[in-house]
Amino acid sequence: MDTEPLTKLDPAYTTVMRIEGALTVLPFLIGAIALGVAGIFPEPWTWAPMAVPAIFAVLFIGLLPIKRFRSRGFHMSDDRVRVVKGVMFHADTVVPFSRVQHLDVEQGPLERAFGIARLILHTAGTHNASVTLPGLAHADAVAMREEIRAHVKRESL
């Protein structure tokens, strides 16, 4: 069961992660500009602090979103869902539908603008009490929720 191909997330998820990255870099950029304008550092180094937001921008806007997108994926079979993630630290989680307590589909403002959503599965276990699958197209997330819910209901009858 570990050989099946993983379903990729929605490509718009990369864009959302890029914007989130940009928001992370923004305070550093403002700080660096402020330092430059104030002229804290001597002449040739006045704009040296800009290196920090520049490096962060390459990391958080350029590199990480692509790497994250590539490392994430999921696979739904008829009785379980497998969620894979992690660039440096891999995690590969399987939740059987029969152990799902309840389900959430969540959207932040950014996610809503790009039409994607997070599917969150809650279990009764102490570890992995909730497993989040981000970056799904909203319609897909809702469809998956309905499918898992239908499965839970059918089993319980």
Partner: peptide
């Protein structure tokens, strides 16, 4: 049991 997870650091 409720879920199973395999994790790996670098």
């Amino acid at each position: 049991l409720h879920s199973v997870e395999i994790t790996q650091g670098p």
